[in-house]
Amino acid sequence: SKDAAQYVYDEAQKGVTQVTVNGVTFKFDNWQKLLKYAQKLLN
Rank of each mutant, 00 (worst) to 15 (best):
K33I: 07
K2L: 11
D29F: 13
Q6F: 03
N30S: 07
N43D: 05
L42I: 02
D10Y: 10
T20Y: 02
A38T: 03
K40N: 05
K36W: 05
Q32V: 10
A38V: 13
K33H: 08
F28C: 12
V19E: 01
Y7G: 15
K40H: 08
S1P: 14
K40W: 08
V16H: 05
F28E: 03
K14I: 14
L35P: 00
E11S: 03
T25S: 13
Q6A: 05
F26N: 09
S1Y: 08
V19Y: 01
W31R: 00
D3E: 03
K2M: 12
K33A: 05
E11R: 01
N30Y: 07
E11N: 08
F26T: 10
L34H: 00
D3K: 02
Y37K: 03
Q18Y: 06
N22P: 14
L41Y: 02
Y9N: 10
F26W: 07
T17M: 07
W31V: 02
K33V: 10
L41I: 06
T17G: 09
Q18S: 03
F26H: 07
L42C: 11
W31P: 01
N43M: 06
G15N: 13
D3F: 10
L42M: 01
F28I: 11
L34V: 01
Y37M: 10
Q6H: 08
T20H: 10
S1R: 03
Y7M: 15
V24W: 12
V21N: 05
D3H: 07
A5P: 15
G15M: 11
K33S: 09
K14A: 09
T25N: 04
V21Y: 01
V19T: 04
Q18E: 03
F26V: 03
Q39K: 02
Q32P: 06
K36A: 12
D10T: 11
L42N: 00
L34R: 00
K33M: 08
A4V: 01
F26E: 09
A38I: 11
A5R: 02
W31M: 05
A38D: 00
G23R: 10
G23D: 09
K27H: 12
V16E: 04
Y7T: 14
D3R: 03
D29G: 12
W31Y: 04
D10S: 05
Q6I: 03
A12D: 12
L34T: 00
L41R: 01
K2W: 14
L35H: 01
V24R: 05
V8A: 03
Q32A: 06
A38H: 01
L42V: 01
T17R: 05
V16T: 04
N22W: 15
